[in-house]
Simulated scan of single mutants.
Amino acid sequence: MITVLFTASYLIMIYEDLSNKLMLRRMLLGIHFIGILYFVELFNASHLMFFFYAAYIIPYVFQVKKKSIEVFMYIIAFAITIFIIAMNHRDYLLFMAPMSVVIILVMLGNFKLLESKKLQDEIRNQNEHINTLIAEQERNRIGQDLHDTLGHVFASLSVKSELAMKLIDKDVDKAKEEIASVNELSKEALMKVRSIVDNLKIQSFEEEIMSMHTLLDNANLLFEFKNADRAQSLSPTKQSALAMILREAINNVIKHAGATKVIGELIEDENGLSMIVEDDGKGMKKVGNDDFQSIKKRVHALNGQFDVHLLNKGLKMTVTLPRGDETL
């Protein structure tokens, strides 16, 4: 009877959805543990191995936390089983003691793996959300670019072509001038369309650094950036996001710092990737909660960390991105 109940409780816990049946779940788990105690007491200590079952069922099937009633029941049943072995099956104790450690480590390891998987799922969902936001931002930017750059061009084309049609029978030379103007406007529109298409291409972080060099050269600022190639460990989306953070930090330096030099660096370690940007400007008296809000939002969207350090001359900003799945 005990064997049948033990087997039935195990199968029900495995195959039935007990997420909303709290009492039934705990009752079945209790029957499972009573069966193990029965087998150990009346047969031999090797039945302690059945605790491997619950070591997988509790974290993966029940999806409970480490500080749950189910885990508490597991620990109590396990401790009682070890006590029974120590009292009645001492010949097995030398072998079962290290196996007990292994079972507990498996239990804790399963919880750790499950937490890691949940964290990876959260990171994946955040990345999908970031990709959606970036795509939406790009659509808005493209729409605005098309409206700003091509709207007036096509309006002019329409007006001039109608004027040329009216003049073609009255003033041929004037009509030719209007047609030539239409031709120039069409070429201008083509160039603007090509420019918009070129801007749609996502640049790598290293390409953005080259653009930064040009920007700061025009602003008469010396710019040095080390280890930009380490950004290759980032996905293209995160490279683009990190480049926007760098560009915003550089714009702040140009507008407010009064600096002569900006130095940047990428540092990669086991925890993730850090970008450091340092200038020799006038700095700040103190950093308030309302400062660098735009950069903070971008970093938060990447689940990263943003720090600002006041120097004797200038500021040092550090952006740290945690290590993700296959790429940062």
Rank of each mutant, 00 (worst) to 15 (best):
T3D: 15
V4E: 10
V4H: 06
L5R: 11
T7V: 08
A8T: 13
L11P: 00
I12H: 03
D17S: 06
L18M: 11
S19E: 05
N20R: 12
K21S: 10
M27T: 08
I31K: 00
I31F: 11
H32Q: 08
F33G: 01
I34M: 11
L37R: 03
L37F: 06
F39Y: 15
V40P: 00
F50Y: 15
Y53Q: 05
I58L: 06
Y60M: 08
F62W: 10
F62T: 04
K67A: 15
E70G: 07
E70L: 11
E70K: 06
A79F: 13
I80E: 04
F83H: 11
F83Q: 09
I85Y: 03
M87S: 09
N88S: 09
L94K: 13
F95W: 08
V106G: 02
M107N: 03
L108K: 06
G109C: 11
N110G: 02
F111E: 08
K112M: 09
L113D: 10
L114W: 04
S116R: 13
K118L: 13
Q120E: 10
Q120K: 12
R124T: 13
N127K: 11
N131D: 12
T132H: 10
L133D: 09
R139W: 06
D145M: 14
L146W: 03
D148F: 08
T149M: 15
G151D: 06
H152C: 00
F154L: 13
A155I: 05
L157T: 03
L157H: 04
K160T: 08
E162V: 06
L167K: 09
L167D: 01
D169G: 00
K174P: 01
E177P: 01
A180Q: 07
N183H: 07
S186H: 04
K187M: 06
L190R: 07
M191G: 02
S195A: 09
N199T: 03
F205Y: 14
E208D: 09
S211E: 14
S211N: 14
M212W: 03
H213V: 08
H213S: 08
H213L: 01
L215S: 05
N218K: 14
K226E: 14
N227I: 01
P236L: 07
Q239C: 00
Q239V: 05
S240F: 12
E248W: 05
K255V: 05
H256C: 10
G258A: 11
G258M: 09
A259E: 00
T260R: 10
K261Y: 09
G264H: 04
G264S: 09
L266H: 02
E268P: 04
D269Q: 07
N271C: 06
N271L: 13
G272K: 07
L273E: 01
I276D: 03
E278T: 14
D279P: 02
G281H: 01
K282S: 10
G283M: 05
G283N: 01
K285W: 01
K285T: 11
K286D: 13
D290W: 01
S294Q: 12
S294Y: 13
K297G: 10
K297L: 13
R298P: 00
H300A: 15
Q305P: 00
L310R: 11
K313W: 02
G314V: 01
L315F: 05
M317L: 14
D325L: 15
